[in-house]
Computed example of a mutant assay.
Amino acid sequence: MPIDAAMALAAEPRTGEISWTARDVQLYHLGIGAGANPDKDSPATDPDELRYTLESRLHVLPSFATVAGAGSPGVISGLSMPGVDVDLAKVLHGGQTLRIHRPLPAEGTATATGRIAAVYDKGKAAVLVMRTEVTDAAGPLWTNDAQIFVRGEGGWGGDRGPSTRPDPPTKDPDRIVERPIRPDQALLYRLCGDYNPLHADPEFAKLAGFDRPILHGLCTYGITLKAVVDTLLGGDVTRVRAYTTRFAGVVFPGETLRIRMWRGPDRVRVAVGVAREVPPLERGGEGAGGDAPVLADTVVEHS
C-alpha cells in the first residue's frame, strides 16, 4: 500500500526556517486579485486596495500564511513524508484550516514545523492531514492544517475520521458579492510557491481528469477571505482568528465566483460557488443557490 498510516504518523516532524518580505506579501495579494477596481468604468485603482498592494500601507491578509516561505512545508511536502508514496495526478487539496495566533508581520523570519497529524481511510480514497506550526522569536504565529485527498488509496480499514458537518444556514445570506477570476490568475498565483502542474500544464490537467488547468484551491481560499474582510470586517485583517473550508469543486480561470455570507456575532458562514449554469444534478451544496459549489462548510472566526 503506497500509504503506510502508522509510518506516516510516527515520522519525525520536519523543521526549517522560513522567511518572507513585503514583496512576497504584495505578490500574494495580487495573486488573489487585489488591486482590481470593482468599478469597471474607472481606470484608477480602488484606494482601499492600497492596503494590500502599497508597501507604505501594507496589511497582511491572514491567508498569506498558506504560502509564506513559498508554502513549505505544505501539501507537496506532505506527499514526501515517510510512509507516503502516491501519484501526484491522484492528489487533490480536500480542505484547509488556519488558526492565527497573532497578526502576521509584513516581513519576518520564523520556524515552521510540519508533520502528518492524521491519516483517514475514506474507502475509495485516503485523507492526510498535514499540520504546520509556525513560530518566531515572539512566540506562535499560526497553525495550518491541509487536508490532502488521495484518490484510490483508501480501503485498508483505518479510521474514517470526523464526519460532523455544520448545519447549512436557514436564512438568506446577509451579503452576496461576485469576484471575477482573471484568465491568467493561476499562472500569477503559482509564483507564490505552488508549482503543481495541474494549475498550468494542459496535458497534466488532462491526466488528472480535467479539460484544462484549474485554479489553485488556496487561491479561491484567499479570494474568499479577502471578500469577507473587505465586506463584513471593515477591511481589518487583524480581526480574523481562524478560517476553515472544505474544497467542494473546481474553478477554472476566467470564471466568476459568487460568495454568499451569513453574519454571526463572532463568525461568518460562507458558501462559494461558480456563477454559471450547470445541469441540476451537479448543483447543490451549502447556500449554492444554483451555482456550482467550490467551497463548503466555510467559517471565518473573528473578533
Rank of each mutant, 00 (worst) to 15 (best):
V75M: 14
V228I: 13
L9H: 08
A89W: 02
A70D: 12
G123W: 01
V270F: 03
P43M: 06
V270K: 02
T135G: 07
R190K: 11
L79M: 05
V272G: 04
G154Y: 01
G158S: 06
R23W: 03
Y120P: 11
A118D: 12
D236P: 14
I3V: 15
P103V: 13
T164L: 10
W156M: 10
D24L: 12
L30G: 11
A200S: 15
A200F: 00
P73C: 00
R241W: 00
R263H: 11
E203D: 15
A11T: 07
G289A: 10
V67A: 00
S303Q: 06
L191Q: 13
A44F: 10
E55D: 12
S19K: 08
I18W: 05
I181Q: 12
R151F: 03
P140F: 06
G284N: 02
A137G: 15
E153K: 11
V272M: 02
W262H: 04
A36Y: 04
R14I: 15
I116H: 07
T224C: 12
A227R: 03
L215C: 12
P183I: 04
G289E: 03
V67W: 04
T244W: 01
A110R: 09
A70W: 05
R276S: 14
I32R: 09
K171C: 03
P162C: 05
G108Q: 09
W262R: 02
T132W: 06
G139K: 09
T132M: 08
V300H: 03
E282M: 13
A44P: 02
F149G: 05
H216A: 10
G209R: 02
G94P: 08
G222N: 08
T97S: 15
G155C: 11
R14P: 00
Y195S: 14
V237M: 10
K171H: 14
A11G: 06
D87M: 14
A288F: 00
W262M: 06
G235Q: 04
R239L: 14
T113D: 04
I181H: 03
R99G: 09
G193Y: 06
M7H: 07
M130N: 08
D236T: 13
V150L: 09
D291S: 10
V251E: 01
A106P: 14
D136F: 08
L88Y: 00
L191A: 11
P162E: 03
A110N: 07
V237C: 14
V299T: 15
S77G: 13
P202L: 09
